[in-house]
Design a protein around this nucleic acid. Structure first.
Lengths: 257, 257
DNA sequence: GTGTCGGAAATTATCGATTATTTGTCAACA
DNA sequence: TGTTGACAAATAATCGATAATTTCCGACAC
């Protein structure tokens, strides 16, 4: 176009089209990989490591990220570090200001409220779409991950089980809406889920006793593959809302505005 | 937390909280800046330049971005270039694969359809929220930008007017929903608007004669500040949908799948 | 006390060079 | 004719060093 770039850009176009959303789901099929799942470069590995460090609360919310210290901590050079941080901006986990560097995104009641309400709107919308156009394969995926989630123990005494449960739980919610056929929407929902998980992992060791989360998940999944839109969406909305309310309570108790 | 980072991260927390969305609106108050609006570093300037180059169609959709050529073209070094590209991933304008580098996000009918339908859902949702909690100041901002938009000429013969109209048009839609009080939602809508503008600027020189776009904008804005939810949202939805349909037609004619 | 003006010190941003990976080519071979 | 493998060229990724900017801190005036 305009002749400016013809020689500068190689025109080997492709049809792949789901950068953001695919990233979310790519992490799903972990292990047993003879496929190259693209975590080769230092920068990409750093994205994962930093994301985990932030979501798990190892990096304090709102704190400044000193490049030199981070460089030493992660045993990397500046270039991949900066690149990884730049990529994490999109996830809403990192903020940036010119000449002032990067900082861990802060946590707040207002932000939690927004994340919760957006999840309610967007995930139910995505679920509705998935129930409209989802294939049989999608149904299978939902049942498979539901089963795995229900069988996964969540023992507050053993942190490694919490971590694992979080991973699978996240995958459950993503799989649920993965049938919607809208990569960009999936990418948005993935971001919101990330932010939400960050609050839960920071402030909640386990769910409050008055909930049976397994039952909630089962009802949502069953409703979804039965294509009962109102039932499934209402259950999903309640599920999200309840978690949000719980978290709000915990944040308030810890005096976080 | 866990004692690992206390010394490595300075704990000067802040309350600023709207990285993504703020970026969208920051570009609004252009000119007359005695305020430092944070476009100082080469990397940040590159983000703007690259975004403009992609949205305007100077960089061919789907093409690979050769770092060496791009470096020469923009007269910069590799570090800021990579960082800028990494940031643009979040906008959905650039895709990345390990060891294969960056490429301009492709355009497709499917993607256009998704962007359009997501805009319909999310912008109307945001508008509804804005009408619920928007302040008088927000109303003023809407009227101001509407006036400016209606007074801005759009002459297909003079590209610089097209560019200017696009900027103001984008700002109009962002301002309209800016009163919603949800930074993350604004950030999502800003991304979608970007993607949508890219299609329009690539495939549409001007609107088809059967539309009076100025009237459409006025009706939406008037309805918004009158807090007539159904009217304003319906008009906005139609407005978005019409543009989407027009664009689909143009894409199909040019044989783009 | 309060403000503010320099000048270190700390930190971020950028550069050029080096290393690692992928891609292209071509000959050997089945 | 098609496939494989080795080598070379092209390209992406990373590093260490340098430049630019901000932050810190004390002297000084008011």
């Amino acid at each position: 176009m305009l002749g400016l770039w013809e020689e500068q850009l190689q025109s080997d176009r492709t049809d792949t089209h789901l950068a953001g959303a695919a990233t979310a789901l790519r992490e799903a099929d972990e292990g047993n990989s003879f496929v190259d799942d693209g975590k080769n470069t230092i920068a990409s590995q750093l994205v994962s490591r930093l994301r985990e460090a932030i979501v798990s609360g190892q990096l304090e919310a709102g704190s400044k990220i000193n490049l030199d210290n981070a460089r030493k901590r992660f045993q990397v050079s500046l270039s991949p570090l900066r690149e990884a941080l730049a990529r994490l901006i999109s996830d809403g986990l990192v903020e940036f200001e010119d000449n002032r560097g990067y900082r861990v995104a802060p946590l707040s009641l207002a932000n939690l409220a927004e994340v919760t309400s957006l999840r309610e709107e967007m995930e139910t919308y995505a679920l509705r779409e998935a129930m409209t156009v989802g294939t049989v394969e999608w149904e299978g995926n939902v049942m498979r991950i539901l089963h795995r989630l229900n069988r996964t123990e969540r023992d507050a005494a053993r942190p490694e089980t919490l971590q694992q449960w979080e991973d699978i739980h996240r995958e459950f919610h993503l799989t649920l809406i993965s049938g919607c056929g809208k990569p960009q929407l999936l990418s948005f929902c993935s971001i919101l889920l990330n932010l939400n998980d960050r609050y839960r992992r920071t402030f909640l060791r386990a769910t409050s006793g008055d909930r049976n989360v397994n039952t909630e998940h089962s009802e949502i999944a069953q409703g979804a593959i039965a294509r009962d839109m109102d039932y499934a969406c209402n259950r999903l909305r309640e599920h999200i809302h309840r978690t949000g309310t719980n978290l709000q309570k915990h944040l308030s108790e810890k005096g976080i505005g």
